[in-house]
């Protein structure tokens, strides 16, 4: 185990871990529209496995839209369309015949506001992705999944004695970690996070950021953030997007985070990270 591809992991190997390690998401010429109004245009980039990639840019630059194209949740919005190619391990998730439901099981997502299912207990929230498609029926199976994913999400110790309480009984930061555990339960290979800490207090934000670093030992994580310090803290790669002419978002620059923040190649990137606009 001396290869550079095998970073030392603090988490024991779990099912899905080897799959996730190889996960590679490539975006080729993606464009997305809402009701014929384009939101992003011609975005191409490669997301590395076991890496946190940050999507940054001013409001309205299309970073959330790009993220929502990666698990085919964009098309759920009425009038929303996508063109281009997104490859997961070489397979185009937009190819005809590919089931978006299967794609979304392999690419998990955490939303900006915590969204636990209001009528479910903490336990049922965690296993919802399995339980509601007929898997994970027994309580012991549920508990096993719940303990594993809640530990991953650094929430287990706080909720292990009240798994049958409503998910809404938790604080906002706990709810968000519950949603992360829920997303991990289906053993995805990639985790998408849409400003996962923007609705949280600083302490909860720090916990979520620590979590991203830990989870990146196993998953490819793609995180949209408004907060450039956060991008600098948690990510290894950063993509900077900007709405150009006609307010259509484009990818301006993409590279290792340290480079992009210290030696941006594009003038617009430099202007943004030095706070000249946005």
């Amino acid at each position: 185990m001396t290869s550079i591809d095998a970073p030392t992991s603090t988490i024991p190997d779990e099912p899905g871990a080897t799959r996730a390690a190889k996960a590679q998401l490539s975006v080729r010429g993606i464009g997305a529209s809402y009701r014929k109004r384009p939101a992003i245009r011609n975005v191409s980039l490669d997301f590395k496995p076991r890496t946190v990639t940050a999507l940054i840019g001013p409001s309205g630059c299309g970073k959330t839209t790009l993220l929502r194209c990666l698990n085919r949740i964009h098309e759920v919005t009425r009038g929303a369309t996508v063109e281009g190619v997104v490859e997961l391990e070489g397979q185009n998730i937009y190819a005809p015949g590919v089931d978006p439901v299967a794609v979304r099981r392999r690419i998990g997502m955490v939303f900006q506001r915590p969204n636990p299912f209001p009528t479910m207990s903490i336990l049922d929230n965690v296993v919802a992705g399995l339980r509601l498609v007929g898997e994970c029926r027994t309580r012991s199976a549920k508990l096993e999944v719940a303990e594993r994913t809640l530990r991953l999400a650094a929430l287990w110790d706080e909720v292990k004695d009240k798994l049958d309480r409503s998910g809404l009984s938790l604080s906002g930061g706990q709810q968000q970690r519950l949603c992360i555990a829920r997303a991990l339960a289906t053993e995805p290979e990639v985790l998408l996070m849409d400003e996962p800490a923007s609705a949280l207090d600083p302490i909860s934000t720090a916990k979520i950021e620590d979590l991203m670093t830990t989870l990146a030992e196993r998953y490819a994580i793609i995180v949209v953030t408004h907060n450039m310090q956060q991008a600098a803290r948690v990510s290894q790669e950063t993509a900077f997007m900007l709405a150009g002419e006609e307010a259509v978002g484009e990818l301006i620059e993409f590279g290792p985070t340290a480079e992009l923040f210290t030696r941006p190649k594009d003038r617009r990137t430099e202007d943004y990270i030095t706070g000249r606009f946005g």
Binding site: A102, V103, R104, M109, R113, N115, F117, T119, A128, L132
Partner: peptide, 26 residues
């Protein structure tokens, strides 16, 4: 809220399960 519905869909739940097991109970 649409975020509840999208949260269920993003878990890889089919539309039917999303509607019957998540949205209607909510």
């Amino acid at each position: 809220p649409v975020t509840i519905r999208e949260g269920a869909l993003a878990l890889g739940l089919p539309v039917y399960a999303t509607t019957v097991r998540v949205v209607i109970p909510a």
